[in-house]
Design a protein around this nucleic acid. Structure first.
Length: 259
DNA sequence: GTAGTGAAAGACATTACATCA
DNA sequence: ATTGATGTAATGTCTTTCACT
């Protein structure tokens, strides 16, 4: 993100990453090995299956991955979105997710609190590692990772979504800090220029008319771009020095706009 | 060629649970 | 033991993209 990007047409935060690798394109469209299916079922008949797997989610990942896998299914809610997911995920997941329902969330006490999985350090580390390589996953990668971590593909997907969001948030904070600094610098610059303008105006008023050089006699120093009088001795005598030509301060290239 | 449509996936906002000080 | 803050898994909705008709 260059400074110019910020300043041309309003502030554009260059958030995010330049391109998502087109995986989006790869993954979709072609039906996967399973056929789309829409299943409506009462939760009753499958409730037992789910409940057996679902204990306290947080017992804390020391349990077998298999258990983890099922627990979260029990914890997850089932909605119309699941129809979509059934297409996306592997067939084994379909079975598990299909039987999930809001009703099945209910604990023994009848409350349907959402159970929340805590990922183990190993799982988190592997996910992080994978995220470093690519911030989005294609279905194959997702499946493989899920299998490796003994999580549902949906959980891997969610983790990546949340991870991307956190990354973006962090970047936004960084950008925000950067813009604040820019703002401060520009304010200072503006103050300085205002002051300089005041001084010049005062000087101009104080000078006799003949002293005021026509513009054509002014010369510009090529190195520092200061404008001085056409005649060296005049310039030497005159304390008045024009400010550099107006330009937008670029903190990337200039430490100060002053010459 | 193009408009309409549906599926898939990601972004985003929000909720809710777990943990810690 | 309680409580508020924080982190984050999970959910719901919206938007975008693409393939198909």
């Amino acid at each position: 993100m260059g400074f110019d990007d910020l300043c041309n047409t309003g502030l554009v935060l260059g958030l995010g990453f330049s391109s998502s690798t087109g995986e989006h394109h790869l993954k979709s469209k072609k039906p996967q090995k399973f056929e789309p299916s829409l299943t409506l079922s009462l939760s009753g008949e499958t409730f037992d299956l789910v409940k057996k797997g679902g204990g306290v989610v947080n017992e804390h990942n020391h349990q077998s991955g298999d258990n983890l896998y099922r627990q979260d299914s029990a914890a997850s809610s089932f909605s119309n979105v699941s129809v979509k997911r059934e297409r996306e995920i592997g067939s084994e997941d379909v079975e598990i997710e299909r039987v999930s329902s809001r009703v099945s969330d209910e604990d023994d006490d009848g409350s349907n609190r959402r159970k929340k999985l805590r990922l183990t350090k190993v799982q988190s580390a592997l996910l992080e590692e994978s995220f470093k390589q690519h911030s989005t996953l294609n279905p194959k990668q997702k499946q493989d990772l899920a299998r490796e971590l003994k999580l549902r593909p949906r959980q891997v997907e969610v983790w990546f979504q949340n991870r991307r969001a956190r990354t973006k948030l962090k970047q936004t904070e960084v950008d925000c800090e950067f813009l604040k600094k820019c703002c401060e610098t520009l304010t200072d610059e503006n103050r300085r220029l205002q002051k300089e303008l005041q001084e010049l105006k005062a000087l101009k008023l104080a000078q006799p008319l003949y002293m005021q050089l026509p513009a054509a006699t002014l010369t510009m120093c090529p190195s520092c771009e200061r404008i001085g009088g056409g005649v060296p001795e005049n310039a030497a005598k005159s304390s008045y020095v024009m400010a550099p030509k107006p330009h937008f301060y670029n903190p990337f290239t200039n430490s100060s706009a002053a010459c």
